[in-house]
Design a binder for these strands. Structure first.
Lengths: 208, 208
DNA sequence: ACGGAGTTCAACCTTTTGATTGATGCCGGG
DNA sequence: CCCGGCATCAATCAAAAGGTTGAACTCCGT
């Protein structure tokens, strides 16, 4: 019997996961959490094998699913954490996996796939949605798609609508440096303007 | 007895709505649809009082929820359509309401609120989520926040990273006209650059 | 220790964008 | 019927952004 904790802020999604997974004879939902903080609390108690963790917990929440995942998996004897989220983007998946998630699934997956992923997680095997696995492999092959931390920071401010001058002031740089970063960003993303760079980075999930 | 049709591409969400609403004694879920096309078909048959309609049907779908809503409500004796979506934005809500939706709800609403909205819709009364209703009233008070159709079109291409020249070619305009539209957009949104305009419009839900 | 990548900056030039002013025609409400 | 908003375009100027070249520094791994 695999004991499950469902962590999601949407009541409808919690009910849906419960309904889908309760029909499996070897699953038992032992707890539900509507906030990330509550999920961390409940995961600390014994009697939980797998945590189904959402990443987005509404704008009013201080802790997100990735943080909660890190806190849960940091403890000895912790349950496995399976991230189940709506939309996939690199900006979400990589932090979640680095935080110690055993798997990553999309909510639009068919019920059988969910159940199989839970069993894999309970057995300690990793379970990744096909689209996520594809992009991880793609990432391995072409390292060109990765922006440096500084470049991501600059691009984030560009996405907020700041001019190069404002960005240079905000980061205590010269405009020349900001331009230099942008040129590198453009070549890496294969675009030639700031708005196109923002769009491309959004599409690839490099920024949110 | 209120007979319901659930239209959503996510199996988990369908199961969740079913679980939440089936517990109400006066509700009966008579059908489910995983695509917008199927929802239109099923809504045409008699025996459906209220359609719970999602707006996003995945990238592989030709018809979205707003189109489906329009087709359903266009027929005589059509059931009421209640839009139930994940995130709310003006770019989604207004087309949906214009298409004839009786109400607009968010999936993170508590179950009782969902049930009450369904009863309101069945009785012909409109049911709007508080945040949606707030913004509709806000819209009435300050008409400054509304972009014209052409302006929205231009801004959409700006958000796609196109230059003014490319936009003018795409829309068969002169660059002067594109600039003119942008100036109007900037004043309406209170910004002074294209990237800031895109960000602001995204935040207000004027574009997706 | 060497090379590569990242970060920082400079100078110069071209293109794009934004700001301003002004003009025309269309359409719908008071 | 006239006014205002919308859409269209022109011309001009200043500012911002983009492209190029070159260079110095740090850090990291081989």
């Amino acid at each position: 019997m695999i004991r499950l904790l469902i962590a999601d802020d949407h009541p409808v999604v919690r009910a849906g996961l419960r309904a889908v997974l309760e029909s499996e004879p070897d699953f038992a939902i032992v707890a539900e959490a509507a906030t990330a903080e509550r999920a961390v609390e409940l995961a600390a108690e014994p009697g939980v094998d797998v945590v189904l963790m959402d990443l987005q917990f509404g704008p009013g929440s201080a802790m997100n699913g990735a943080r909660a995942t890190a806190e849960i998996t940091a403890r000895p004897g912790a349950p496995r954490v399976l991230v189940v989220t709506t939309y996939d983007s690199d900006a979400d998946t990589l932090p979640a996996l680095e935080a110690g998630a055993t798997g990553y699934l999309l909510k639009d997956a068919p019920p059988e796939e969910l159940a199989q992923a839970v069993r894999a997680a309970a057995a300690g095997r990793s379970a990744l949605a096909p689209s996520v696995a594809d992009r991880l492999l793609e990432r391995m092959r072409s390292p060109a798609a990765a922006l440096s931390a500084r470049e991501t920071e600059v691009l984030g401010l560009v996405a907020d609508g700041l001019t190069n001058q404002r960005i240079s002031q905000r980061l205590h740089l010269s405009q020349a440096t900001v331009k230099s970063h942008l040129v590198h960003i453009y070549t890496k993303l294969g675009v030639d303007s700031r708005t196109a760079a923002v769009r491309e980075a959004r599409g690839r999930g490099l920024i949110r």
